[in-house]
Amino acid sequence: MDVTYAEVGATREGPLPAGYLHVTRRVRLTAGFAAAAEALARWRPQHGAGLRVRTDAERAGLGVEFASGIGAGPLRLWVPCKIVWIVDEPDRYGFGFGTLPGHVETGEEAFLLSTDAEGHVWFDVRAFSRPAKWWVKLGAPVARLLQAKVTDRYTAAMQSL
Rank of each mutant, 00 (worst) to 15 (best):
A72K: 11
L62Q: 13
T30Y: 12
A72T: 13
T4Q: 06
L75F: 11
R59N: 11
A148K: 13
W78N: 01
P45M: 05
S114Q: 10
A67T: 05
V136T: 14
D56E: 14
R76E: 14
E65L: 12
A18F: 09
H22K: 03
A140K: 13
A67N: 02
P45G: 02
A60L: 11
A140Q: 11
G102P: 03
D116G: 09
H22G: 03
V142Y: 15
V136L: 14
Y93V: 03
P101Y: 07
L75S: 06
T151N: 05
G32K: 05
T55Y: 12
R52H: 14
V121G: 01
Y93S: 01
R59E: 14
I70N: 02
R25V: 02
R144E: 10
Y154I: 03
F33P: 00
R42L: 06
E118N: 09
Q46W: 10
L40P: 00
K133G: 00
L100N: 05
T30D: 15
L21S: 13
A132H: 13
A127Q: 01
D116V: 06
T106C: 11
A117C: 03
A72R: 13
V23E: 14
Y20L: 10
F128L: 06
L161W: 03
C81Q: 06
M1N: 15
V87H: 09
R44G: 04
E108I: 00
V3K: 03
V121W: 05
G32F: 07
E13N: 06
R76Y: 04
S114C: 04
R130N: 11
Q46R: 09
A156Y: 12
F128S: 04
F66K: 01
G102V: 06
L16A: 07
A41W: 01
R153F: 08
G48C: 11
L75I: 04
F95P: 00
G63R: 07
P101K: 02
R44D: 11
P90W: 12
W43C: 02
V142C: 09
L40C: 06
Q159N: 11
G102R: 09
G9Y: 13
A31Y: 12
A60F: 08
I83E: 00
L100I: 01
V3T: 14
P17F: 05
F97L: 10
E58D: 15
R28E: 15
A72G: 07
A57M: 00
V79G: 12
R144Q: 12
R126T: 00
A37N: 06
A6P: 08
F95K: 03
A132P: 02
L113I: 03
D56F: 05
T155C: 15
G9M: 10
L29S: 07
G107V: 00
A127R: 01
H103E: 13
F66I: 09
R153M: 09
A110C: 12
S160M: 06
Q46C: 10
T99H: 04
L138I: 05
A156C: 09
